[in-house]
Design a protein around this nucleic acid. Sequence first.
RNA 1: GCGGCAGUAGUCUAGCUUGGUUAUGACACGAGCUUGCCAAGCUCGCGACGCGGGUUCGAAUCCCGCCUGCCGCACCA
Length: 509
Amino acid sequence: MSKKHEEVMELAKRRGFIWPSFEIYGGVAGFYDFGPLGALLKNKIIQKWREFYVVREGFFEIDSPSIVPEEVLKASGHVEHFVDAMVECQKCGAAFRVADLAREQAGKDIEGMPKEEMDRFFKKHKVRCPDCGGELGKIFDFNAMFRTAIGPGSQRVGYLRPETAQGIFIDFKRLQRHARGKLPFGVVQIGKGYRNEISPRQGIIRLREFTMAEAEVFFDPGDPHHPRFSELAGEQLRLWLAKDQEKGKEQLTEVTVEQAVKEKLVCNEFMAYYLALTKRFLLDLGIPNEVIRFREQTPGQRAHYSSETWDAEVSTERFGWVEIAGIAYRTDYDLSRHAQFSGEDLTIFSADKKRKVLCHVVEPSYGIDRPLYCALEHAYVQEKKRKYFRLKKDLAPIEVGVFPLLNRAGMPEKAREVYGNLKLKGFMAEYNDAGSIGRRYARADEIGVPYCVTIDYETLKQNDVTIRHRDTTKQIRVDIEKLPDVLKKLLNDEIEFDKAGKPIETTSK
RNA sequence: GCGGCAGUAGUCUAGCUUGGUUAUGACACGAGCUUGCCAAGCUCGCGACGCGGGUUCGAAUCCCGCCUGCCGCACCA
């Protein structure tokens, strides 16, 4: 049992980052709420992701429904691959798709049959375990999508989306027009996805409802060159190749992005580019390089739509290597399926306008909840006297704490004034005058507040304040008029702490 | 989903074996006092037996079901 995980979760729970959902009704496994600080943190992670993919990559962001009619997910292959009735052998424990066994042993297609009927059908046809001949257990749904009915009456079948990607593929015709027919172009969607896990157990790592951020990059399969490949070509990647995994070798292959493509370890520039971008994103969340690796999925592990997939994994104390993002080469699978099922022509003109092509897709797909946990775990610091989240400044839910040194001589009033001004300037600030100054610093550290401003006797005389740095507990003095500007520069890493004001010595008891 | 163990204030915890006063303590939190910089101190206060049923005169304590968590198995497209 990992002590760190327990401490991180205890702190996260106590201070309002993460709570089990539906607690007063006993809770439901696989669901977590983000409390006030957790919601702020999550939004900052999402915002950072937007900066990477929407601002810098220039991808279009859309927002489509999370309830999806059945035809879409039939076309995408999810109905076939997600909603399987399963049965387990009671003797050897092997699990099988009910539909497969019925076809093999009774020669009948029972897809869509109610479970009770399937049970009767299995008894009637004496279906046994194909591996050991053992008795089979009760039939159960596994890993199903959440099913629902759209509207009354006819009850059109719908599902809660298992991924946001389909919303993008569905809109392809309008999106490519929005891109004015130019290739490549990318589209992203950030939103909830749903997977009805059988027994989610790893806390926030395996949720039944989770936030995902997905990008679909459309390109001409005849021209798989990323226009800005050179920008990331030199980035180092640590790859765990499928062939090494199959041989049971733990060894990682360290190459540059450029080498990865040249040596055909990664199938094309788009895939390699987004591996590198994913690495940069994780580093930017404060996750150290040593705990990041890219694992190539073996053919058996890959989803039905993918011909090559790399998982970005982060090592955690509690859960080992955790998949944070998947970079999948979806080929033209989705577009061709939707073209086929909808009857729409989804081909477009190639860059040279000489050919009609069906775009290929590379998909960097991220969970948001998992990196949030990883960022917390890797930010958690236990020092002699204090334990706190050393969150990156641009992730900290509260940016600045404002405290009066003492509750007398007009200090609280002055502190509230400073606090009010900082809020007006857009800072996520918190005022606290409870207990002693030391307690306030400790409470602020705990939730990762990078800077604390203290109003003391000097403030009242010379209109300046101290700023305290979370990581070093060092302090500087800064004029109140300059405070917002200095804080902004500090938070943006534009200035060094020691040079942002006059360093001061404090006398502690 | 199967088997084993567990669940007491915001957090940690005593009590459970052997049923019986107003459920223990600490920390945290709030108010007041105090306090010249890193969880100081004093006073007061808030706050819990996971949910439901059963046994019993009486249940935190014994029994059953459910929920949740942990461990193992299975599952994780």
